[in-house]
């Protein structure tokens, strides 16, 4: 579970994140929408402990990020906009390294199976990453989330720049992870993907969570209209 309890961040005089109250339950995908500079990445950084909050706290599966940032990171997987990998290593070697450092060393055949489950063919998994497309990199990121067995997942613009097919495949994997009970918080600009994948959507404007909608609430609504209305409000 991911939980923000009055989580606040200031940069000098500017409030980047007003007290945020948020709970992402296991099996839930929460899409955080908002324009550039709204505070989406700041929220992710606060959950990862890369930023110290000025107020409140973030918790990952019950572990306070403020008091035990390393312990909290051990319970969460993180997929950035572009999964960064070591170009002179294969996807398999990258996965082995990252999962080992994440405290979940696994044998090679298990890792290969995870990469295949994430949609990366076996022959690609053993090829050097320097030749990978962005979609293939994101698949290694998904495989890493699977390898670490994290019960919470943070995503920062994960489908940005992916072609529709790769984006669709990525969404499929996300939904599968959620079905396995993973709590997912995804910062994104992609309204289409948010609507397709998220169980709840929040709109962040100037550091404030100004609206939240459940999938049911959005059923007959035009998300783009709602989003633009909230921005101009």
């Amino acid at each position: 579970m991911l939980e923000a309890d009055q989580l606040t961040k200031r940069f000098g005089d500017r409030v980047a994140l007003h007290p945020l109250q948020l709970k992402v339950e296991p099996g839930e995908i929460f899409a955080l929408l908002g324009p550039n500079g709204a505070g989406k990445t700041t929220t992710i950084n606060l959950f990862l402990g890369f930023l110290a909050p000025d107020g409140g706290d973030a918790r990952v599966c019950g572990t306070s990020v403020k008091s035990d940032p390393v312990g909290a990171r051990r319970k969460v997987a993180y997929i950035p906009e572009l999964v960064a990998l070591y170009p002179r290593f294969s996807g398999l070697e990258n996965l082995d390294y990252f999962s080992r450092l994440g405290g979940r060393a696994r044998p090679a055949d298990e890792l290969l199976a995870l990469l295949e489950r994430a949609g990366l063919p076996r022959d690609a998994a053993t090829r050097r990453v320097a030749t990978y497309s962005k979609g293939m990199r994101q698949k290694v990121g998904i495989a890493l989330a699977l390898a670490t067995g994290a019960k919470a997942l943070l995503l920062d613009e994960p489908t940005s720049g992916l072609d529709p097919a790769a984006s669709h495949e990525f969404s499929r994997m996300l939904r599968r992870l959620a079905a396995d009970g993973v709590a997912i918080l995804m910062a994104t600009h992609d309204l289409f993907r948010a609507r397709e994948d998220a169980s709840r959507i929040g709109i962040l404007v100037a550091g404030r969570l100004v609206a939240q909608y459940s999938r049911a609430e959005l059923r007959d609504q035009d998300l783009e209209r709602l989003y633009l209305e909230r921005l101009s409000a």
Partner: peptide, 11 residues
Amino acid sequence: RGTLRQLLALG
């Protein structure tokens, strides 16, 4: 490269 951020995110 961005791998530092990922390493730190792994704990």
